[in-house]
Simulated scan of single mutants.
Amino acid sequence: MKLWNLQGKLLQTLKGHKNSVRGVAFSPDGETIATASWDKTVKLWNLQGKLLQTLKGHEDIVNGVAFSPDGETIATASFDKTVKLWTNWRIEDLTKLGCEWLNDYLITHPQELEELKICQTYGRKKVASRNLVIVGEKLARESNGETKKLEAAAAKLEKAAKWNPDLDLNPNFKVWAASLGEAEKLMEEGTELAREGKIEAAIEKYQRAKELDKVAFIPTWQNINPEAKAKLEASDAVDGLDKGSKLVKRGKVKDAIDSYKQVEKIDPTQITAGYWYTLCWYGSLYKQAADVMFACEKAVALSPKDGGIIDSRGLARALTGDIEGAIEDFQVYVEWTDNEKNKAQRQEWIKALQAGENPFTD
């Protein structure tokens, strides 16, 4: 950021942000400058260009900053969908502030909240309890019937019930965990049988798995059709997806979409983020971004931390006129990738889009 007087003389150049500066504000007394940046931070400077403090806590781009009229509070607005208020925190407030900064993370990662007892409040535990149930059920499903893993899963489920009695959970935690572990085992056995051509036996396994899966807080197998899934596995659904991938790479986007949708009707769990990404990326390259946008969104939903997948959605967004969304996705990719060539290319795209220009040629 550069500071000028009204005669156009450059007074100071403020350096320190690692990415674009989105917002600037002067304190009411005119002595402090606040800058908001794409690097997810807000920095405070004096008029001599000295960095006074860096405010960290947002999880995405900070695109707005303002001082209160009395100068005691700073408000910051971010793409992480939050507004944060900052004051001159006392040292005894730092622990509470840290827990508040981590609030969303702790709620979505309840196993971390279990470890950070200092951040455990009644309200935070209650909100995180649902995610703790999900963690417990995941452990149960991945247990492969091992006693220790099932016990660990049951312990998570029991703790979730203690954190939030309003969930009204099944108190037979060990039976609950064992049922989900057995359901996953039956699904795997059914798939093996189907691929061996033993359709009737596979259907029976799948049906039993569905029954056991009913105890789940978040059921996984209730929407499957045992007969359809067995036949799909017997014919190998991945072949159908590979066919769709090859079609879109050759520019036959409509045929590829039809192939994907046929598999999705039978068993959507077969289509991984990678398959959706392929349909999104190549569909966009063949100028049919609007038609494959649904695939872009599905890919991101299945793998929300994969910068390459988010980058493919950025291209589709740019080609369909969602410039702000495209810039946001490309920025995520820039921060994610270690490929300097690709990083520089996306940065040029961002600059062009911000300037209202189209950086893409045929």
Rank of each mutant, 00 (worst) to 15 (best):
T13Y: 06
D39G: 00
E59I: 12
T13G: 04
G30M: 06
A154E: 01
W38T: 10
A344C: 09
C280W: 00
K198H: 13
I218H: 15
I224H: 11
K56Y: 07
T147Q: 15
V24P: 03
P110N: 03
R90H: 14
I74M: 12
V65W: 01
E340P: 01
W336L: 11
A155Q: 10
V127P: 01
I91A: 15
L167P: 04
S245V: 12
L180Q: 06
R317C: 08
I271R: 04
Q120N: 02
V135W: 10
R313I: 00
T32D: 09
E297A: 03
N342Q: 12
D258H: 02
K126L: 14
T121G: 06
K159R: 11
E158W: 05
Y282P: 03
Q345F: 13
K210N: 10
E151V: 08
T35W: 01
T32V: 11
M1C: 06
L97R: 12
A299Q: 04
A237S: 13
V175F: 14
Q111K: 14
G98S: 15
E188S: 14
Q12Y: 13
E114V: 15
Q48L: 10
L157H: 04
F360K: 04
K246Q: 11
W349G: 03
E142D: 09
R141H: 03
L193T: 01
E348Y: 09
W38R: 11
A178R: 05
W45G: 02
T82R: 12
K243S: 11
P226W: 06
N19P: 12
E72Q: 13
D291H: 03
Q262P: 09
V175I: 14
V175N: 13
E59V: 10
W89N: 14
K210I: 11
P69Q: 09
K243M: 09
T320L: 00
E92P: 12
Q48K: 10
K159H: 10
A66D: 11
A75S: 05
K138D: 09
L241H: 01
K174H: 11
A183T: 03
K246N: 07
T32H: 04
L186W: 06
A344Y: 07
A301W: 05
K174A: 15
D168T: 08
A34K: 00
L241I: 05
I310L: 07
A355W: 06
V238E: 15
A273D: 06
H58C: 06
E137T: 02
Q345R: 13
L132V: 03
L97W: 15
Y122S: 15
L193C: 05
V332W: 15
V83W: 14
K81D: 14
L51P: 08
F26Q: 10
L3G: 12
L97H: 12
I218T: 14
G314E: 02
S37Q: 02
I271T: 02
T35S: 04
L6N: 13
Y122G: 14
T121Y: 09
Y275D: 01
I266F: 09
G181A: 02
F67K: 02
I199A: 07
W281A: 03
N223Y: 12
M187Y: 09
P219V: 01
